[in-house]
Nucleic acid binder design. Sequence first.
DNA 1: CGACGGTACTAATGCGGTTTAGCTCATGTC
DNA 2: GACATGAGCTAAACCGCATTAGTACCGTCG
Lengths: 352, 352
Amino acid sequence: MTPQSDGGARTTPARRPTIKDIARRAGVSESAVSFALNGRPGVSQGTRDRIHRVAEDLGWQPNSAARALSGERSGCVGLVLARPAHTLGVESFFLQLVSGVQEVLASRKVALLFQVVEDIEAECAVYKRWWAEKRVDGVLVVDPRSEDPRPELLDSLGLPSVMIGAPAEGGRQVSTVWADDSAAMASVLAHLHELGHRHVVHVAGLPGLAHTERRITSLRTEAHRLGLTAIRSVPTDYSDAEGAEATRRVLDEAVPPTAIVYDNDVMAVAGVAVAAERGIKVPGELSIVAWDDSALCRVTHPRLTALVRDTSGFGRLAAEELLAQLDGGPVRSLQAELPHLEPRESTGPPAP
Amino acid sequence: MTPQSDGGARTTPARRPTIKDIARRAGVSESAVSFALNGRPGVSQGTRDRIHRVAEDLGWQPNSAARALSGERSGCVGLVLARPAHTLGVESFFLQLVSGVQEVLASRKVALLFQVVEDIEAECAVYKRWWAEKRVDGVLVVDPRSEDPRPELLDSLGLPSVMIGAPAEGGRQVSTVWADDSAAMASVLAHLHELGHRHVVHVAGLPGLAHTERRITSLRTEAHRLGLTAIRSVPTDYSDAEGAEATRRVLDEAVPPTAIVYDNDVMAVAGVAVAAERGIKVPGELSIVAWDDSALCRVTHPRLTALVRDTSGFGRLAAEELLAQLDGGPVRSLQAELPHLEPRESTGPPAP
DNA sequence: CGACGGTACTAATGCGGTTTAGCTCATGTC
DNA sequence: GACATGAGCTAAACCGCATTAGTACCGTCG
């Protein structure tokens, strides 16, 4: 830590123009300006144009605090990510989601308040604070759980919100946007079944998460339907470490699986590494499928067969839905496009 | 898209308590409440305590808009990430940085406004808008460039800011927080030199970025000092695709390098994959070093020797510095802890 | 020709805080 | 006992915008 320059006086920058400045320059009252700039009736077309010109000239933008204070809208939506610090930052899902969200929000001049916390309790605390401070108009909620306290909390606060990734839950006034994990899992299993696999392991993500549960259930149902018995899910925390560990465990079993489905890209890559370390050929002796595509799936050797979904499109959908709700739209449950399987080099027929 | 429930009337939630409510309940004026809650003089200890108790009871939190409007502080800082959508989301650096930033901000109840945009022009536009809307009190700026328009812009707006990753630049009233890439690069080259490598290629990141330039310069200087001539940098855009492509190119040369240093983890992993695809043994025939450690470096086989830095600590430092500046502190240039090399399995002596 | 209705605008108020100015009363001072 | 002092509190202005309640003016119609 080396202080280097102590910085002198900062020159005072241009003062922000206000409605008053516009009013003076245009020779009208402040209210006229407000009407004109907000497209309200009560000003002639002539003055309206003049006001717009002056505002443009001055580079005026509404002061967000003032607007929030009078208009009852802060122009912000919130997004909290509850993840223990060490699991942060490898998965591609999240930033892509956010980039989709932003596209929509930015076009409507809505800002995104973002916060990373350790766990779900802290997450709830953030919602309460944001609500009390009137910081956000609504929130996007990720990582829905099977026993989730958040819909109830958000409902009681009356904070408009969209749950990303969960189907509708009974009774709560919370919109949801979700992908059909069940169908997707079925398509993955069908692909492997067609190739001839009869013994598949699903290295799942966190058990508490709703979509994990859906995938596990779907796997079981489909396996049953296909008459397969040697099929099961093992839980992890989504980390590379547990992904690798789970892989080692199942490969050590008396009858190891011929295919493994991983619940995210990071674990799938870890699985490839474990196979490499043991000299197990992929896909010759072991087929691997990654849930969620990303650059990762393309940098491994062999490149990974992956379940591709339009993550940023998912984010866009969620953001649209939240904005619609803020505009007084109904609470709904929307389903995103079905993920599709992109076969690459990591899946093939099992060894005879 | 399947609308499912149309949501009925939302029950009106509890009204947010205001200072007025506290004043009434405590039997004092609103100003007294404001003084008490902000630790200003002008109220006796007795009333002060009483007011605090009432505020606590009511669960009062200051309305952020109101406070921003009168207090000249929005309680928000901004962070813009300018990346083309397709390069988003693999690198671990960013989310870790943010998690460090948040730790500090949250403890001071400052919110983080986050925005993803396509390029640096859009980024500048966001700063201008945030300034005009008075949305943020300051900003954190990432990915500094060698010819960077942002310090000048931020300076002219008078928006307090901290550049993350660049050493101080002449004249601008912008703080900086940076790591000594030059020394780090020197340590990497020393490691490889000790192992016996004489022909090293540096697969660099985007040429425009300041730290890329520093690493390239340092590599050249150090190579010269060590009397090595077969050493050079090749530029990429940080993506897995270009990392792989660059690797193929240099391995195709008449005299291929015996070691490659990659400017991020993703490209290093891509490099490993290219080696695997060609049957080149790592580290037997090719040593690989990754700049920045992450789960990725541990899931490859072999695990990657990496340059470790405390990214979230870096974020903390930057956030601290920005807050200090908002509190009237001087503009400074701070240096973060020196990254250190973590030798793993991907580096070894070159083939004889 | 005066009441009427509509248009184009202004004045005034409020949002929830912060801050300045002022007011009251007890105390100390000479 | 008159007067300055300061502690403890209140009233009022203000931040920048949205909104509601007027007001002035004009044309129209009975």
